[in-house]
Design a protein around this nucleic acid. Structure first.
Lengths: 285, 285
DNA sequence: CCGTCGCTTCGGCCGGCGCCGAAAGGACGC
DNA sequence: GCGTCCTTTCGGCGCCGGCCGAAGCGACGG
């Protein structure tokens, strides 16, 4: 399926560009004259034209997201699904050729992977790790919420604030509310960190029918906090968060709205959540 | 002291991606034959110059780190201390005037704060949140470790890999080892998330003499995982991580090496760590 | 087999931005 | 007061990179 990997499974950037072997990360040469100061001094020794104290790696990653169009692509892909090149182009409002170039860069940079099917090129985030990276970044930039300028936007933002997916788990008021309810009912504890309690572990296997083996064996953390973007409070992510989200979707207690990230709690879902976790339907309406 | 803030206390402005409509990708359904871009003026409508689906906010943040020099500055500041403009300039190997411009951008972007003293301009990371952001980013980019090209570099990298600070807590083999020891001795549990145990909480207040009130009242999480950059395993961060680091430094069980992030365990420290947590000195030598 | 459609390649344009050096502005110390 | 030192401002240079449109390629589907 997925056919094109960048050299590394993770970010670091695979020199695997389609065209040529160009690459050559950031200005390696540094012709600027000089050079001075061969390390005579202490640790923070100045000079050394070929500095590169590791900043170039961070910068290379940041550069991938430093463009409005690429950032928009990544945010769109945070819904966890695959999009075609054309869809992304229309979504971001750029020409198809422009989209192609951006997609290539994102793939080469290891943020995306692709799967070609016929004349379509599907891309999606390379891994849950990448999704986590994006979550973390967006969590660090939100505070002041800008008011929507049109009714459409207002409606859309309200829907997103109410409930949405964060790649593979639930977020928004819905996600935070579920997390809060789990904490109140002793399934989760946030007092000394962020972890499921033993009761919480039992709840996942017994009530949600999730195989204990799966919970144990995953390489990903069972539970971790993901700072909610609209609520400014943590919600549950990690394997447990993903399984809960999947469970609710499978039972149609939560439905996606359109193709974006927004979700809605169904009638049956309200009943189920009140029943399972004692969540007041009004809190997530 | 700190005199210059960017407009926002935090980073960027709030995004918002109206995920309302657009198209549904997903190989399965593929309803896309018909009707690309319905909904007049809808989300994915091209030509609409005002696209901006929130990507611009993410991009603005990323742009701050998308330059080698700025990224180098930020990484340097991750040692948690304040640096002068000139120190940063020499460290990164750029002219003082260039450094000034970068520092201005970082301050305006909310990543740094400054304190002017006489003819010096001291800057440091704006908050632990920013430090966390940087940690998260660096954690997501390391995998392939580039070999050092010179003996100096090799020595420096080895020192960093052995032990360093990660803004306000310990990282490197030392940090991971402490975290591991705490887990083995039942002070910390990572089975169902990442949190201190009750024994761990008691250990902090009793053995380390940290006021219980301080642990309770902090806005920051008591314990959180920070993915270690060289070890590829989590180490302890959050209030507990910071206090442990401070405690070890105050007792001179751990010393800074030079002005960078590297630290070293002292003789007395080896004894103390073996005594407190059963850490084998060889493991952190 | 041919038209359509999605994607890609290529050339060209343009703006942004990172860099520097020279010169100026303050602080400090003598 | 007068050098010295740290920092800033300004002008100028050059390149990178994002954008588009036109043309080409390959997959479908009649």
């Amino acid at each position: 399926m997925i056919s094109r990997f960048s050299g590394s499974t993770s970010l670091g950037g695979g020199p695997d560009s389609p065209g040529a072997a160009s690459i050559s990360p950031s200005g390696a040469s540094t012709p600027l004259g000089a050079d001075p100061t061969p390390l005579g001094g202490g640790p923070a020794s100045p000079g050394d034209g070929s500095a590169d104290r590791g900043g170039s790696h961070l910068a290379r990653l940041a550069r991938l997201l430093a463009d409005d169009t690429r950032a928009t692509f990544c945010l769109a892909l945070l819904n966890g699904q695959a999009w075609t090149a054309g869809e992304l182009a229309r979504y971001a409002g750029v020409a198809p050729s422009t989209a192609t170039e951006h997609i290539n860069r994102l793939i080469d940079g290891g943020l995306l992977v692709e799967a070609r099917q016929g004349r379509h090129r599907y891309v999606q985030l390379a891994s849950p790790d990448v999704a986590q990276l994006l979550e973390e970044l967006t969590a660090h930039l939100d505070p002041p919420r800008p008011p929507a300028r049109s009714l459409r936007q207002a409606t859309a933002s309200a829907a997103l604030a109410r409930g949405r997916t964060c790649y593979d788990h639930l977020a928004g008021r819905l996600g935070v509310e579920i997390t809060g309810a789990m904490t109140r009912t002793g399934l989760l504890q946030q007092r000394t960190g962020f972890a499921l309690t033993d009761a919480g572990l039992a709840w996942l296997t017994e009530t949600l029918d999730i195989p204990a083996a799966e919970l144990r064996e995953s390489r990903r953390p069972l539970a971790r906090a993901c700072l909610d973007w609209t609520e400014r409070r943590p919600h549950l992510a990690g394997v447990a968060g993903a399984r809960i989200c999947r469970y609710l979707m499978e039972h149609r207690w939560v439905d996606r709205i359109g193709s974006g990230r927004a979700v809605r709690v169904t009638r049956a879902g309200e009943v189920a959540l009140a029943d399972l976790l004692g969540i007041d339907p009004a809190a997530i309406a």
